[in-house]
Simulated assay, not measured.
Amino acid sequence: MAVTILKERWTSKVAEVTIGEGPKAVKVGGDSTLPYLTFEGQVPNAPVVALEVSDVYPEDWPEILKNAWGDVLSDPVAWAKKAVEFGADAVALRLDSAHPDKGNASAEDVARTAKAVADAIDVPLIVLGCGVEEKDAEIFPTVGEVLQGKNCLIGCATQENYNSIVATALVNGHSVIASSPLDINLAKQLNILITEMNLPSDRIVIDPLIGALGYGIEYAYSIMERARLGALTGDKMLAMPIICFVGQESWKAKEAKDEGSPEGYDWGGQYTRAILWEVMTATTLLQAGGHLFLMRHPDSLKQFKDHVAAISKGAQY
């Protein structure tokens, strides 16, 4: 007896964004179906996984995470090289030293660091600001200029500072992370504002803001799913690939950063628990429609990539 599979017929697809130059450049997006439903459409590009690097020593990281990196945490260039050795598809450099509470480094100072990191690696570079919107607007024109020709992904651009960051991307040939706080309408509005500055939609990546496993991930999932459905049904202002700050959120969770267990509970060993917290956050967001994943522990990256390989058998990348 023949079995007929009912197929959804989508009318559009997610935009495809290229990050980096040369043979190690990566593409994200391009999907014309929901995640892994390849009998309904195409998923031309595999998920991209980046490891985070900071330009200051990460004092607030738990010891189990610091220990994974050894003695490179005070040297962003050595740290970035190690990330590539661990198998990262890209490196995400955080310019934390520009934060007023972490040194208030000048635009020239952080630009020198960004240029040194970019020159030391052969994979694409994602450059993240310090998280203070006014300061990020101040440093990115200089950072973007010294990285001209590298086709970096820079951000995060918000509704308060997008003008400066988008202008930098336009002048210097970069793509932009558009960040909005877990609201589909705010995400769409920011994308409209950015495209009105003539940055093409294939140079925008959406950061919808995510939560970690057990910390609001279900709400993040629903926002990402709605964005993907909007893209597939023709909404051009939601048709950008999605970036997920997995490591940043996962390692805030007490289950990942606490060595012991609460009284009356046995959480098991911290290493297994913490790695799984990061991996499970990433795999959940993968199914929600994520394309680019920023992680912190190299073992998490490996396990996540193994998972992607297992569920991608038969898919053409």
Rank of each mutant, 00 (worst) to 15 (best):
V279F: 08
D258G: 05
F39S: 09
S106K: 11
A231E: 02
K302Q: 13
A25S: 15
T113V: 15
I194M: 04
L73I: 10
V308P: 05
W61E: 06
W277M: 11
V26L: 10
G230Y: 04
V166P: 00
A50S: 15
T18H: 04
A25L: 09
A2T: 09
D119H: 12
T272D: 15
F293R: 01
V171T: 13
Y57G: 07
A50T: 06
L6Y: 06
Y36L: 14
K13T: 07
A111K: 00
A227Q: 13
E40V: 04
K66Y: 11
H99K: 08
A118L: 09
D122P: 03
Y36A: 13
Y215Q: 14
D306F: 06
I165Y: 00
K150H: 13
S180R: 13
T195M: 14
E278T: 12
M237W: 14
P100C: 11
I210T: 14
E85H: 09
Q159E: 14
L213M: 13
E145F: 04
L170M: 12
K305A: 04
T11F: 06
M224F: 04
S12V: 06
T38N: 12
K236C: 03
Q316S: 13
V49C: 09
F86I: 05
K66S: 11
P208V: 01
W61V: 08
L153F: 04
